[in-house]
Design a protein around this nucleic acid. Structure first.
Lengths: 210, 210
DNA sequence: GTCTATAGAGTGATAGAC
DNA sequence: GTCTATCACTCTATAGAC
């Protein structure tokens, strides 16, 4: 094999090029609506090269999903160390909104996959996922035990609301644009979104500055 | 024609049967992933009958979208008369969550359509939609002017957060189940969701009972 | 590694008998 | 109105020349 030097770098470069094109196509048309031809065209490559690098449409799609989910992890994993509720929440919401802004297509591919019952990533949503979720949630639960945030709200649903609201700006971007009557979502929209959600969450947890 | 008496009622019954089957298929596989054969099988009809009643896959999908959107309207249009903020918000969130619970497939079909840039319903998201949205938002804006709710939050984004959070339980049902480690979302989950979101919104608007 | 040509499977749609 | 048989087309995938 030749995963070294210049030859390996061609492989890598082409794989990345194809993945990138595939993300755009899959996010816009879904799995079944996307054709290998469209991906190849977008990457300026002949169609068989896509098969050469990824074997099949299924495998390419799985590679795209893996790419998308590792993007997610790399953005949010820095934020596991939770010192103080207020700062943590502010940073968490900000990171999530920023991700939706910078990677809307990644978010939409993931959303479509969940929408259809996660046919390609079911295996990642077993018991381990439940445990991971509990770990995240327990950050908030601990603060409730410590008496520093409102003990009456459900920490499970608090997380769901944050996820839903932040991902909304990627997944429902089209509707948000239409509602606001703008062709593009500029920085101020995302800033207002962040501020509004942060205000609501902090108020609900009894952490308002007022 | 024969849109009267027993013959017309067969037409109507079969159309409804097909629409219902189509909703299930489209919501699970998306537009391109759904086959006429699968819809026909689910309705226990031979494939050509679907074409006989709806002409084409496109037209059937459009009929499904219309059905889904009128479901939405009929559920939420009762709620336009806004007397008092607290009651309005409580009822609005409750209605939205109930809709997600009772019509998750309708919500997912709509979500998939928006996700892909609304290729089949773009026409409904023009200037009229923007005006409709402003009308809904102005209910809250008026309350800000009247000084009965927090004037510092963005009313646009308040609505987005409510929409996102309530639809999340339909669109991301699979992930919610996995996170909670349950096979079914029972009544208490939806009750907790409603309560949590209501608490956050009321607190953010300065309407808490405490 | 790259690309042309094509095989092979599946799908939307319709003709035409009942 | 209902259903069998089939056409026409598209798409994934691969063989094989370069």
């Amino acid at each position: 094999m030749n995963q070294d030097s210049s030859i390996g770098s061609i492989r890598l470069k082409n794989r990345e090029l194809i993945i990138h094109s595939a993300i755009r196509e899959f996010s816009q048309k879904g799995f079944s609506g996307t054709t290998i031809q469209a991906i190849a065209d977008r990457a300026n490559l002949p169609k068989p090269n896509v098969h050469y690098y990824f074997g099949s449409k299924d495998k390419l799609y799985q590679a795209v999903l893996s790419h998308v989910m590792s993007l997610w992890d790399s953005t949010l994993d820095e934020l596991t160390h939770a010192s103080e509720p207020r700062t943590f929440i502010e940073q968490y919401i900000d990171k999530k909104i920023t991700f939706s802004r910078e990677n809307p297509e990644a978010s939409r591919i993931f959303a479509a996959e969940i929408l259809n019952g996660a046919p390609y990533i079911k295996s990642r949503f077993g018991g381990d996922y439940h445990n991971w979720f509990c770990g995240r949630r327990d950050i908030f639960k601990q603060w409730q035990t410590d008496g520093v945030i409102n003990p009456d709200i459900s920490t499970d649903h608090l997380l769901f609301i944050i996820w839903a609201s932040t991902q909304h700006y990627a997944d429902y971007e089209f509707q948000v644009k239409a509602a606001l009557g703008t062709r593009r979502l500029n920085a101020s929209v995302y800033r207002d979104a962040t501020n509004t959600l942060t205000t609501l969450v902090l108020a609900g947890l009894g952490l308002s500055q007022t």
